[in-house]
Every structure is written in C-alpha cells, then in structure tokens.
Write a protein that binds this DNA or RNA. Structure first.
Lengths: 343, 343
DNA sequence: TCTGCGCGTTGAAAGGTTTCAATAGCAGAC
DNA sequence: GTCTGCTATTGAAACCTTTCAACGCGCAGA
C-alpha cells in the first residue's frame, strides 16, 4: 500500500484508479470524480492540480465501473443486415462518425440476413446493457425489441418501417425513388422496361415497383416487366439479365432493385455484347460508390446513406435522453443521379 | 421488496439481478453464480431449479459488473483502415464471425487513414479495457500499443508488419503476390506493363512492385513502368489510366495496386474505347467481390480476407489466454485468380 | 458412537466509479 | 464577535457479479 509513492514512473502493475489519483493529489475521490465530470464545480486551483496528477499517473477511467454505477452502457449496438453491401456499410459509417462526436462506442454485428445471428447479437447487446440499438430487422424480432425497450434500451429501426408506429425509424421514400427512376427512363424515350429484383415480399421492392408501374401506365405504349430474384446481389442481376436476353422481346431499359443487381446486369449485357446505354439503359438504386466507378458509370437513385446514419443516431440519442420522446418516422428524399448508363 | 412475488409477469421496474434470482430460488447468490459459470459444481436438482427461476424472471447477466470484477472487458476492439474498401470489411467480417463463436462483442472503429481518429479510438478502447485489439496502424502508434500491452491488452497488427517483432501480425505475402501477377501478364504475352498505385512509401506497394520488377527484368524486351498515385481508390485508377492513355507508348497491360484502382482503370479504358483485354489487360489485387462483378470480370491476386480475420482473432485470443505467448507473424499465401480482363 | 472426508452451499469481500447528504471553511452582514 | 449563506470538498453508499475461505451435512470407516 505505497499510497504516497505514486511517482512519475507509472508503476503499471495494477491499473490506476480514482482512489490512487485522489491519494496522490491529496483530495477525496469525490473531488476527482468532479474534476472528471463536473469541472465547473471544482475550484480552479484544485482542478488544475488534479488534472496534472491524472496526466502524471496516466489514469484512464474504467468504463465498466462507470457503467455499473450508471446501470447502462454508453455504447450503442447496431445490427447491420449485410456488411457486404456498401449501402449498409455507408450507413454504418455515418453512424460511427456521429457517435464518435459523442464519444460513444459502437458495437457492431452483422446478421447477414440470418434470423439466428440476429438473435445472438440481441442477446449480446442485452448483456451489455447497451443504451441504444440500431437495427434493420430480419426475423420476427418485434417482441424482443419491445422487451429491450421495456428494459430501458432505446431502439431505432433503420431502412425499414415496423408499421406499428412503435419504434422510431429512418428510411427513404421508395415510392418517390421508384417514380424518379421510371420517369427518367420514360423521358429518355425508353418504353420496354424491366424491373429486376426481389424478393417480391420486401416492402421496398413493392413500393419501388408499384410506383414505377404507375409511371409506366401513364405513358402510351410503355410496358413494365418484373423479373423477380431471391436475393439482391450481383449474381441475381447477372442471372436476371441473362434470362431477359434469352427470352423474346428484349427490353430497352432495366431498372435494377439496387446497385449490386445493376452491376450484375451491366456485366451480363457487356459480356453478351449488348451496348449500354445504346441498346439497353440501366438504372440502379442506392448510388453506392461502385455505381460511379463501373465501367459504364451507372445512373442510380441515390439514398443519402450517411445522412440516414446520422439521423438514426440523432433519433436514438434523443430517445436515450428522454425515454418519453415521441416516436418518429423520418423519411428522407432520394435523388436521381444520371450517368452514362442511361445515356 | 416483494421478493417472493417474482412471478411470470416480469415487473421490469428494475433490472433483475443475481440477488433477485437467489431470493426467488431460495439459494445464495454464490450458487446462482455457480449455476451460471460452473454448472458442474452444482447439484442437478438445484441447477435445474435455479435455471428455471432464471428463465421465469428473465434474468440477463450484467456484463459491466462481470467486467469490473474481472478487470477486463470481454470485448475486442478493432480499428479498420478504410471501411469503404471491401477488402477491410471482409476482414472485419471474418473477425466478427470468429468472435461470435466465442460470444465476444466486437467494438469497431474506422480510422479512415486519419491518425487523429485512430488515436480517439485507442482512447476509447483503453477506457473500455478491451481485452484485445486488432489494428491496421496509420499514425505513429507504436508507443500507444506498447502502453496498451503493458496494461494487459493483447494486440495483433493486421495487414501490416511492425518490423520490430513486438506484436503479432497477420498479412499476405506481397512479394509472392506481385510475382504472381507479373508472371501471369508476361506469360500471356504482355511486355509493356504499367503498375498503377501508391503511395510509394507503403511497404505493400514496395513489395508488390519490386517483385513485379524482378519478374519483368527476367524477360527479354519486357518493361515495367510505375505510375504513382496518392491514394488507392477508383479515382486514382481512373486518373492513372487517363495519364497513360494521353502519353506515348501505351502499355499492353496494367497491374493495379488493388481492385479499387483496377476498377477505375477499367472505367477509364472502357470510356476511351480501349478494348479489355484485347488492347490492354488488367489485373488487380485483393479479389474483392466487385472484381468478379465488373463489366469485364477482373483478374486479381486474391488475398484470403476472411482467413486473415480468423487468423488474427485466433492469435489474439491465444495472446489473451496466455500473455506470455510467443509473438508470431502469420503470412498467408495469395492466389492468382484469372478472369476475362487478362484474356 | 465418533472421526474424517467430500460435496454442495454459503456469505462476505472486492472491483472502480458516481452520487449525494453532510461538513468545513470563509466572507459578509448585523 | 456571532450568525447566515454560500461554495468547495468529503466520505460512504450503491451498482452487480465473481471468487474463495469457511461451513454444514451426510456417509464411510474405525
């Protein structure tokens, strides 16, 4: 117990605690805590002195103890749907940036569309007592989310809506997005349009497709075909496009459910010697960076991903600060980005 | 204190603790803890009973308290260099999968090549007392890493080597990778090769370039040109390729420092009407999914990213279990993947 | 019947922070 | 010189889990 021996050389045997700092500075632990958390309550002289001791001893606050006391972890948990789709990593990046401003850690998990993995992460987050949770749900998790909220964890749903108005959410106006894409294709003179993507059951798909259909219906002689796929990756796009090419009545434009699908479509067309955009125009959705970097730069309907992340965190932090805060559904506007692939 | 009233309906006012479980089950907290952590020490009858109570009350272990007691967080921290490059997210994914098997949370931060952000994350991880740290260093962090290790945090360096043999690392044999790419181009008859990428100072670039140079030197009439870029993204590739096209003596093959650069190169060539691979062959590095999905599928030198993540975690967990474990540099083998872009 | 043994269980201590009621110190008012 | 009111500081309690020495009990062996 060499309390007074705390000298310059950090004897790093055991971690330095507030108690050590207090002893070395000749003040009480309460004061040290105040220096850390409410510096304005401490006299300037004491403040300065304690801060110096903290620096000298290399004290680093133990967050576990702080959490224990506070009853909640400062960290935010996030369950991402698919880390391999830059759309989601871009959202995560927005989240992370905003969170860093608040010095809150982000505990990240990716469900990879697997309900079981999703559930495992929810278990983990519950043990961690995270103060907030961001999730793009896969399985039937509403009951779990309710339970989490009852236990004091704020929840915000990302890129989905629960429909039940129970949880705040951040999403993009898919109807508008579908409309923008279809209008653009129609305005550039395309009439035989195919929509590639799926599965059909996904709300987003339904909205985008339905809006596109309405636009197409409003133009004489224009038709829309739906090519359903099980997943929404490049492979799906490739196969969907190959099917279209093999069949009769080749379309003159393809609206892909997202950019990954669009990239697959572009590949299939290129390899088949179909000229883009002369023979077939392609437009994607999301506007991930790879859309702009494609061999034929892809037109796309831009989703403001970083902003989605930011908005989600802002909603979440608001809910954490005031658990009675109102449930809000934030709907962001998509934006048409025209590039080479639609001429 | 309605201890005995703990019934099916979770009165979720305050979180259920071991103490509550103990009271409801009529045993001591020590026994509850044993049920949780050393079930074999508990008599079958008690075990069964306590487990039922745990289920009934919806008890979830408070990890903060556990951490406080243990002195260390079960979580692993990871600082990723650039989340926008799928190469790194793929590694992170491998890490995450392996970690999930051990029920350890992953706290993720991305430095985006910024030394300051990197430093902020190290602060955060220190406060969290993470038990292990995975990092692809940007700034001068060796002193920090040393300090972390002194304080009991295991450290593994990913996709870099420190040179100092102080920290374990996982990386890929870049010399071999550079050799594979160059050999492949030379064997397919290419003689005027350009290497696009940079910055020059990066060890990886040096190794890949140097190995390629050696291969080229071994073949009569073959030449290698180096086009240095500041970053390693699609934009850099695009500009590098444009420069090459504008200059005299157009190459017949381009070896891109990574796949992002290669995609940019492909775009520039396509837009300039240069045929790939007929006029110019392209090979990238990493073999991210987008290489296979490019309009002209890209040949690449595959880095086993998931395996890198797994190996890194295995090293890390070994170091956590036994702090005296030997420092190891794991070097994985790259693999040539031939696709359309090199004919 | 007594001793010794082993198993299962207990209860208290420890871990580091924050909070808050209580205290000390001090200046100004009377 | 005493009292009031204020600010700065104190010290102990609380948060929840894990660990471990100690305890009680039943049973086998003497």
């Amino acid at each position: 117990m060499t309390t007074s021996e705390a000298t310059t050389n950090g004897d790093t045997s055991r971690s330095v605690s507030v108690k050590d700092v207090a002893a070395a500075a000749g003040v009480s632990v309460g004061t040290v805590s105040n220096v850390l958390n409410r510096p304005e309550k401490v006299s300037p002289a004491t403040l300065e002195h304690v801060q110096q001791v903290i620096g000298r001893l290399g004290f680093v606050r133990n967050d576990a103890a702080r959490q224990l006391r506070a009853g909640t972890n400062r960290a935010i948990g996030m369950v991402v749907l698919d880390v391999r789709n830059p759309f989601f990593t871009d959202i995560a990046r927005g989240v992370e940036l905003r969170l860093a401003e608040h010095r809150r850690p982000l505990i990240l998990g990716s469900s990879d569309q697997d309900a079981e993995r999703e559930s495992t992460y929810l278990d983990l987050f519950e043990e961690q007592r995270v103060s907030g949770l961001l999730i793009t749900p896969v399985g039937k998790v509403l009951p779990r989310l309710r339970r989490l909220r009852e236990r004091g964890t704020a929840v915000v749903v990302v890129d989905r809506r629960t429909g039940s108005r129970e949880f705040s959410s951040v999403a993009v106006d898919d109807v508008r997005g579908g409309r923008l894409a279809a209008q653009h294709l129609l305005e550039s003179g395309r009439r035989r349009i195919a929509f590639i993507g799926g599965p059909r059951g996904l709300t987003q798909i339904k909205h985008r497709l339905h809006a596109a259909q309405e636009e197409v219906d409003a133009v004489d002689g224009a038709r829309l075909r739906f090519v359903e796929t099980g997943t929404m990756d490049a492979d799906a796009g490739r196969r969907g496009a190959e099917d279209l090419l093999a069949g009769p009545d080749r379309p003159d434009a393809i609206f892909a459910a997202n950019d990954l699908v669009a990239l697959g479509v572009l590949q299939a067309l290129t390899l088949a010697g179909v000229r883009v955009p002369e023979d077939v125009a392609i437009i994607g959705f999301d506007d991930i960076d790879f859309a702009a970097s494609a061999a034929i730069p892809l037109s796309s309907v831009r989703q403001p991903r970083a902003e989605m992340g930011r908005a989600a965190i802002d909603l979440l932090l608001a809910a954490i600060d005031d658990p009675a805060a109102q449930v809000r559904d934030i709907v962001l506007e998509p934006e048409l980005v025209v590039r080479r692939s639609t001429g």
